[in-house]
Nucleic acid binder design. Sequence first.
DNA 1: CCGATTTACGAAGCATACTTCGCATTACAT
DNA 2: ATGTAATGCGAAGTATGCTTCGTAAATCGG
Lengths: 161, 161
Amino acid sequence: MAGRNKTKADVSWPLEERPGYLIRRLHQIHVALFQEKCAAYEITPLQYSLLTALAKRGTADQTALAQDIALDRTTTTGALKRLQARGFVDRSIGPHDRRSRTCRLTRSGAALLRKIERPARAAHLATIADLSKADQKRFIAMMQAIVAAQGQRLDATRSPD
Amino acid sequence: MAGRNKTKADVSWPLEERPGYLIRRLHQIHVALFQEKCAAYEITPLQYSLLTALAKRGTADQTALAQDIALDRTTTTGALKRLQARGFVDRSIGPHDRRSRTCRLTRSGAALLRKIERPARAAHLATIADLSKADQKRFIAMMQAIVAAQGQRLDATRSPD
DNA sequence: CCGATTTACGAAGCATACTTCGCATTACAT
DNA sequence: ATGTAATGCGAAGTATGCTTCGTAAATCGG
């Protein structure tokens, strides 16, 4: 019989099958795991990304850091300010360009990064720990494939203005 | 030669290989795709989740909706208020319990949900469109596996207080 | 050298997303 | 019935995450 049960919700397929919804849950789960494992240091996933990006650069202006971690500029600035307020990051006026802020890890920031390395890694691993080892590799590869393909497109739409 | 190149960044493995980072990028990509496809209706992924959850329930208090979409209560309330302000949702005092807010779709909200169905679905599909059809199914299954396993744990930690 | 464009930020505003706290109301046990 | 628990919200505070607009400084063409 066609048209059975047409009252309400056959309009959309279930939440739990929608990629976007599942991605939000994953993000939520990872953030929670990260906060849990790194509770002693009161650091967020974003701040950790920033610290590692900064460590890799040594010195960088805010725009470069924002691009490194694929985040918009103002959000990056906000996070850097918070890290600066806690003494982990130095944000001084650029020597060559007075508009810019040259950021670098402080001694304290570098120490924090070293200490947080293990729990942070544990959080990242715990996020996908429910998959088999083989699936974990596949899962990461698939995410990388999507990001590689779509990330381009996102940047592209932003440029022409 | 051991210990080569120990200057800076062998502290952590690259951002692009960390599950949490990739998940954030995926979330970012999905939200952008959703906003793009549904631009005409000015609706966000979260609001869409809420509308569908509400359609399925018919009537529900805010706590039930928050649980349906796996979101914390105050954030849910905020989104519902915004939907109410735009006339898509009705939030009236509960008839049996005056503390509660009984929500339901307005006629306008139900109409919006019908119109937005196609572009929203397109956004969800576009998010994983770069994977092969077979990988798409695997990818969704893996996300579901993680959410099923970890989602439990998250709720559990929250309950005892 | 100087005006126009570009660039790096900052400020403001909206929408998630979560925590803690407090209030009002209901439900429950004695 | 009455004091206590549990419950449904709301308010406030912090952190992301994005957009748009404005400002100041650098750059570049002429």
